[in-house]
């Protein structure tokens, strides 16, 4: 009975194709663009991809679970540091060993921090995550024997994939990161569209109600917190490979703030919003560094003010609305996305 009665919701194949168009277009853009531009732009695009993963991971707990973390760079830093230490200090060459180990380490740290941070909610959660972020930062600065302190770890090689006769170049690495980004995108997308993801959104909007229905809301928040930490760790690991250097600043408050800005600018309510935010911020940073390096923080602030004043809900939602207008005709209310 269910299947037949649901007919009106199921879309025709043509309509489905139209819905897929933005994805096809985005994928083509991301795959073709690195091939057409010079190497220095390729590295910048790689950075966009890394931060896209980072911002998406934050959006899982912020946009979908309603937990605003001001210490998300802690997990980014741990992913990067563990990978860097395993490769440079312990000489574990193979990416297939060091990669999963650093992801596991991030997950364990997120699991430990989550128990502390999720004892409180709201602004207090923000403050506790800030404190935990500072904790990771100071460990990175003070534990000189392991992390080289404020000098940072240098000489992190590109990942050894164990493929015979394969040598890295900027283009290959760009596609490697893009590949990881696509996997992360699909995994996170599946999570937010699953019963688990719906429950997270329920916890975000109506926590008492979800508890009444019988959801252990704390456990949901905790699992989401760990998953977000793991994906941030993946981003951090890729960032250490990308840069070849890993520094305490990469796990500091400034990094947490930048990724928060990416999510704000891209929009928390759209799944792909953080990717847009990552593109905007990294591109702006790049051009600012070319033309007015000293003015970057000011420019970042201006972008933030503009985003809050004129792009309420983020760029992502406006793009979706524009797209809805294109396919449904101007002024249509069909499928209109609420702010």
């Amino acid at each position: 009975m269910g299947g037949i009665a649901l007919e009106p919701i199921k879309r025709s194949s043509q309509e489905q194709l139209v819905r897929l168009l933005p994805y096809i277009f985005g994928l083509l853009l991301f795959t073709m663009f690195p091939l057409l531009v010079p190497t220095y732009l390729q590295t910048m695009i790689t950075k966009v991809f890394v931060f896209a993963i980072f911002a998406m991971s934050l959006n899982l707990i912020w946009g979908y679970t309603g937990l605003t973390s001001l210490g998300h760079a802690a997990y980014f830093g741990i992913g990067g540091y563990v990978y860097a230490i395993l490769v440079t200090r312990y000489g574990i060459e193979s990416f297939w060993v060091s990669g999963p180990l650093s992801i596991l380490a991030t997950g364990l740290v997120a699991a430990a921090f989550g128990i502390v941070a999720l004892r409180v909610t709201g602004v207090y959660f923000l403050l506790v995550t800030l404190a935990l972020g500072r904790l990771v930062y100071y460990v990175a600065v003070k534990w000189r024997s392991m992390t080289q302190g404020s000098d940072g770890i240098i000489g992190i090689a590109l990942p050894n994939l164990g493929l015979p006769g394969f040598t890295w170049n900027a283009t290959y690495f760009c596609f490697f990161v893009l590949f990881v980004l696509i996997i992360c995108y699909i995994l996170l997308y599946l999570i937010v569209k699953s019963p688990f993801g719906y429950a997270l959104q329920g916890v975000r909007d109506q926590e008492p109600r979800m508890r009444c229905l019988g959801y252990n809301t704390w456990l949901y928040k905790y699992i989401a917190f760990i998953i977000a930490g793991i994906f941030a760790g993946i981003a951090g690991m890729l960032f250490s490979q990308y840069l070849g250097v890993f520094h305490p600043d990469h796990t500091g408050v400034a990094m947490s703030t930048v990724v928060l800005l990416m999510v704000i600018i891209g929009g928390t309510r759209m799944f792909f919003g953080p990717i847009i935010g990552a593109i905007v911020i990294v591109l702006l940073e790049y051009f600012a560094s070319l033309y007015m390096p000293a003015r970057w923080p000011m420019l970042l602030g201006a972008v933030f003010v503009i985003a809050v004043m004129f792009l309420r809900g983020g760029i992502g939602i406006h793009l979706v609305r524009l797209w809805e207008k294109v396919i449904n005709g101007y002024g249509s209310v069909k499928g209109c996305v609420p702010l």
């Binding site: 995994l187 599946l190 569209k193 699953s194 019963p195 993801g197 429950a199 229905l213």
Partner: peptide, 18 residues
Amino acid sequence: QPAVHVLKPSRFHMFRSI
């Protein structure tokens, strides 16, 4: 949706569309 899933193990399913 959350209400019909809550008593089933599916409330923890992560990789299947709701």
